[in-house]
Write a protein that binds this DNA or RNA. Structure first.
Length: 568
RNA sequence: GGACCAGUAGCUCAGCUGGAUAGAGCAACGCCCUUCUAAGGCGUGGGUCGGACGUUCGAAUCGUCUCUGGUUCACCA
């Protein structure tokens, strides 16, 4: 597509002693469309040229020639305001959408690059709660968007299937297995055991030591411990899969922590070889005090490993298996220090420089309840299956009220209910903490998933009524020059840029906000104009624009993991 | 105590790498369905951008200090 910003930058660059890239970085979008489409502030030049910004702007205006791209230039209080050729913009955007169809906004910027997205990563034998949901939804969106931009993307569910917690589970299972059937609600049974054994550990140090011993036995391949551990794993995966199916989330690999249980010796060897390993209080550590990062434990004093060791083994394995350019860890910010340590220690693993540089922690904020922090042990978690079901149920009720004759009510309710929950998790900057409130999550008015879906359904409904999508050659773009249409066009133009920023910042909320903006602009257009019109030319133009909006809403939502209903 | 993160309207949040009058949604109030889906649109009210100082032609945005909240700081993950 035409890059107007670059074109303007080039025109300015001819007359100013600055790099093109620097000029382009100064170009901004005016706060109000009447002030132009792009603006170049001349204040920075004032010092260099020792003239007033206003004078510089006037002079520049005189030197820059108008052409088919730029219609007009105005000087306003030190700004050079550019008015681009709206007909050309309209034509460019619509032609691009027509030609690329379901791939609009995608590009090849990631070609040849391998990106790992590690996300979801729930703990086996514990409930899948709304914290994991946030993680899963963020990771899945990043995964899809990277892929859309041409990256070879690998999604890894780094299951929490290892560690002392399983020693605890085994200890609990040994003691109380006969009290449970593990059939109706296996996760709940597991959690019950987990809470009981934790309480016992608090009271009795010997029990805790027995738990640690059990974990060590798993590592050593003790048949009983491994069998029980596998049982928990199978039960959990089956439960998690139900949620992934509802969310439409898939992984390329389920290699969790346990997968690396036999790959940690090499890490220890390498650290030793580099002289990075130190004995301290019976444990083996890497001392990072000089970097202000404390110490990173590699082996505990009882000889067994710890999660940092497994993360390091994973880095080594992944660099060999996937030759990654980026490895994103979607993990809550609680683990900031942990990842800083691990990435620092990874320098001793002899992996390629690009892999080392590609390690990135995508930290997101905590989900807390109005009553405070969630705790598995306290039993205060909100379970995702219950949340999703509640959301779907509420949508069904609303459909029953508003549109009782609708087709496929169940299916559509599912898309809307789940879409609402997904959108709620993606609509604000991921680093911010979120207070979970049923009423906020299950609100379907305003800036929500259902709002976007509703707008999409409107575009579909208009097309359905008309009976066909007009041929782009029958669209007279001069009939799309009103304020409302132009607002939409400029937003559509920006879609690819938004996707690029999402990847650059690992911030899917940018796309979520974008879709709200697009939806609002269409709602506005819809209310201002009659789309189905007596004048066939006007109708063709507006229906075509509606189709284009629907297309981008569907692509964008799809990238966030939100499906579009046909009716609402 | 050290480190990191956050603090914008009653609530939830936008505000791009400093730029032109600080924007949405929710909640409140008032309008708009004999016209394409009112899960919608329009309007009104609501702000010392936590505070202070500084850098700059210009600061919600950058720097320093400070207050508040959160997270984390060795054998859990």
């Amino acid at each position: 597509m035409i890059d107007f910003k670059k074109i303007i930058g080039e025109k300015i660059a001819k007359n100013v002693q600055l790099d093109l890239s620097e000029i382009v970085s100064y170009i901004e979008i005016p706060p109000n469309p009447e002030m132009g489409d792009y603006a170049f502030p001349c204040f920075k030049l004032a010092k260099i040229l020792k003239k007033s910004p206003q004078m510089i702007a006037e002079e520049l205006k005189g030197k820059i020639e108008l052409d088919e791209n730029i219609e007009e230039i105005k000087v306003v209080s030190g700004y050079l305001n550019f008015y681009i050729n709206k007909l050309l913009l309209t034509k460019t955007v619509l032609t691009e959408i027509e030609n690329s169809k379901d791939t609009y906004g995608s590009n090849k910027s990631g070609n040849g690059k391998n990106v790992i997205v590690e996300y979801s990563s729930p703990n086996i034998a514990k409930p899948f709660h709304i914290g994991h949901l946030r993680n899963t939804v963020i990771g899945a969106a990043l995964y899809k968007i990277y892929k859309y931009l041409g990256y070879n993307t690998i999604g890894i569910n780094h299951l929490g299937d290892y560690g002392t917690q399983f020693g605890k589970m085994i200890e609990g299972y040994k003691r109380w297995a006969q009290e449970y059937d593990f059939k109706k609600d296996p996760i709940s049974d597991c959690m019950d055991i987990y809470v009981r054994i934790n309480n016992l550990c608090k009271e009795d140090e010997n029990v805790l030591n027995a738990c640690r011993e059990n974990f060590k036995k798993i590592e050593e391949g003790d048949p009983y411990c491994v069998e029980v551990w596998n049982k928990f794993k199978d039960l959990s995966l089956k439960e998690f899969q139900k949620i992934y199916d509802l969310l439409g989330v898939k992984f390329d690999s389920l290699n969790g922590e346990a997968f690396y249980s036999d790959k940690m010796d090499e890490v220890v060897d390498k650290l030793e070889k580099h002289g990075a390993l130190k004995d301290s209080e019976g444990a083996k550590i890497v001392d990072l005090e000089d970097k202000g990062l404390g110490v990173c434990i590699i082996k505990k004093s009882n000889g067994s490993t710890i999660y940092a060791t497994r993360d390091l083994a994973a880095i080594l394995y992944r660099s060999r298996t996937y030759d990654f350019d980026k490895c994103l860890y979607v993990v809550a910010y609680e683990q900031n220090l942990h990842f800083k340590q691990v990435f620092e220690v990874a320098k001793y693993l002899d992996i390629p420089e690009k892999c080392l540089k590609g390690l990135q922690h995508v930290a997101y904020g905590m989900v807390r309840l109005t009553t405070g922090r969630m705790s598995t042990r306290e039993g205060t978690v909100v379970k995702v299956d219950e949340l999703l079901q509640e959301s779907i149920d509420r949508v069904e009720k609303i459909i029953e009220e508003k549109n009782p004759d609708m087709q496929n009510k169940k299916e559509e309710a599912k898309k809307i209910g789940i879409g609402a929950v997904i959108f709620n998790n993606l609509c604000s900057t991921i680093i911010k903490d979120q207070v979970f409130d049923w009423n906020t999550v299950l609100n379907f008015n305003g800036e929500t998933g259902p709002y976007i879906q509703y707008v999409y359904v409107r575009t579909k409904s208009v097309i359905e009524k008309v009976g066909n999508i007009p041929d782009i050659n029958d669209v007279n773009i001069e009939l799309l020059q009103d304020k409302e249409s132009q607002k939409i066009i400029s937003i559509l133009y920006n879609f690819e840029n938004i996707l690029m920023s999402v990847v650059e910042k690992n911030e899917p909320s940018l796309l979520a906000r974008y879709l709200i903006e697009l939806s609002q602009s269409y709602s506005n257009f819809y209310n201002e104009n009659k789309i189905i019109d007596k004048d066939r030319k006007i109708q063709d133009a507006r229906v075509y624009l509606s189709w284009a909006v629907g297309k981008v809403l569907k692509i964008g939502s799809g990238l966030l993991g939100i499906e579009m209903p046909d009716k609402m």
